[in-house]
Design a protein around this nucleic acid. Structure first.
Lengths: 330, 330
DNA sequence: CTGAAAGCGCTAACAT
DNA sequence: ATGTTAGCGCTTTCAG
């Protein structure tokens, strides 16, 4: 089933078929109808492989993920898929598992497939090595930014998100704040702490308890807040660097008969539906706009493919405050 | 950068380069080394597009998902990716959103791209319409099975999983069982209930409370078990059709001072780490072997591509009992 | 063992 | 407005 078959059936030449189907050449209306009809009858679908060989464009981009589609990666991917779909660009996916050897292998495979560009996604809150210098196609990093500043990366604006969270606490009248996060070594922890302290400092305030670093788990959230309760320090708000931690905190407070949000407000980070909605009360949180991170990264890639221009540096996407009951005021 | 450049540099013809690089023709050792060296120096990567045009194979399969990479789809996809990667097959992904029009559009796009096969994934526990009759490439359905019995589908063996759960309850000495599930209209609910009742019947037992149907949420789990507690019926085990429900149940029992697993055992379904581990106590559950569902579906597709043979019908993959504290016996 | 030649199915100048 | 032609970069007979 080739354009030749359609041509024969419509009684025209192959190039006329090409013009009619692509809409790019001048073809008489009537002829075009005849060709379209023939194509439909034969169930003809243009062979994109052949077209790509000629044009040099595959309308395909390669995506290499390093964290096995973690919870954060999936929305990013969906945002990218959606943006790409609008440009009729497909995406071939592979799982680098954060292993540079595997990554290089897949990059080669992408190059052989002549993808038009490469998108690299990773877990949030981490930087990563550049994929490879001198790649013949544009590359954009999403979530995990490249440490090479000639590369282009798109990430959520973590710092601003954390500042928004802190401001929200203050604006709901809470000034005795506690900060609980994941591992101290994670960039996300440090950035969010710094942002929190910055906002407090702007009001001549400080955290009432030294920042608590642990894991990104509910269990740690429970444990950390118990520690704070035991310390006896007075507090009326808890800023958590993830929804899982916030849920653990909320649960432990509930069990200690501390009223949330009455006595203590709690805010999380992520807007992860499962955590946020199942929590009692539902959690206020910061949404990282992951979908938009993905679509912005894809748009940048598409633009780079079209124009050859790719602005280097890190682009930060705004986070959104999502207020729910855990910080509401009576 | 083409095979011609490599040929020139190595002082041989293009066809010799092709043979040397593909390893398919007879080339003198020494010549081959020279060609390999030239290719390396020029950073040459075979143009797969051109190769595909000739061979008619793209080593690519199309994946169309209907539930936007839900929690269940991701592991399936990873299983498939892994299996495909071993055969150097790439996967192009698109998101049908369960919309037949979109799906047909993407199928056409796959056909134009000359994918070698199509994998259709969906949410678990549902059947779905066949993609399209008379597709020129093999199609395999994963998780959501096709209602057309000429199609090939791979799904977790839900029924057997539920029977395993019920048997586990009995074997840990619990006979007064309650069953809590999601919506009654979902196949998953009905299959799991039937399986549970079947196992009980085999021991001349029945559920001590009529089965409870609601949503797949923690909230529903809490609410349902409260209802059971209020009814005053004596029970020593709760079979939940999802981990989220099980977590809600466990939480509510804890708050009602019912000891789990001492007084009541609780088992879930899914083995969703976040739910299962954060629960107090950690949940026993049924693992649906999603990774294997994905890899089995991919293997079937690969075999079909190679041989043209695709055994129709529904293949069920075994589920695994994962015992944890919520059903342990002292 | 190596090379010349004929396409794979399409697109885009360039004629007509 | 339509057709002719010359490739895109590769693989694979088929000669030498």
């Amino acid at each position: 089933m080739t354009a030749g078959d359609v041509a024969a059936r419509a009684g025209v030449s192959i190039s006329t078929v090409s013009k009619a189907l692509s809409g790019k050449g001048a073809v008489r209306y009537e002829t075009k109808q005849r060709i379209l009809a023939a194509a439909r009858e034969l169930n003809f679908q243009t062979n994109q492989v052949a077209a790509s060989l000629f044009t040099g464009k595959t309308n395909t981009i390669g995506v290499i993920t390093s964290d096995r589609f973690g919870r954060l990666t999936v929305p990013v991917l969906l945002g990218a898929i959606e943006a790409l779909a609008e440009h009729e660009i497909a995406l071939v996916l592979c799982d680098g598992r954060g292993d540079p050897i595997r990554e290089q292998y897949f990059v080669d495979s992408f190059l052989r497939r002549r993808v038009d560009g490469i998108l690299v996604t990773g877990a949030g809150g981490f930087s990563r090595d550049s994929l490879r210098p001198d790649l013949p196609v544009p590359v954009v990093y999403a979530m995990a930014w490249s440490r090479d500043d000639r590369d282009t990366s798109v990430v959520p604006d973590d710092g601003e998100g954390a500042r928004t969270a802190a401001r929200h606490m203050l604006s709901t009248g809470r000034e005795q704040l506690v900060f609980i996060s994941g591992p101290q070594r994670d960039d996300a922890s440090r950035v969010r702490l710094a942002a929190t302290e910055e906002v407090l400092a702007g009001r001549d305030l400080r955290l009432v308890h030294e920042p608590l670093f642990g894991d990104w788990t509910e269990r740690w959230g429970r444990q950390a807040i118990k520690q704070v309760l035991l310390s006896g320090v007075a507090f009326d708000g808890v800023i958590c660097a993830s929804d899982q931690i916030a849920r653990g905190v909320t649960e432990a407070l509930r069990e200690a008969d501390v009223d949330v949000p009455g006595a203590v407000g709690v805010i999380g980070f992520d807007n992860w539906d499962v955590m946020v909605e199942a929590s009692r009360p539902p959690l206020s949180t910061i949404d990282m706009s992951l979908h938009e991170v993905g679509s912005a990264a894809a748009e940048a890639l598409i633009a780079a493919i079209d124009t050859g221009e790719l602005e280097p540096g890190i682009r930060r996407i705004d986070c959104q405050l999502v207020p729910r009951e855990s910080t509401s005021v009576a």
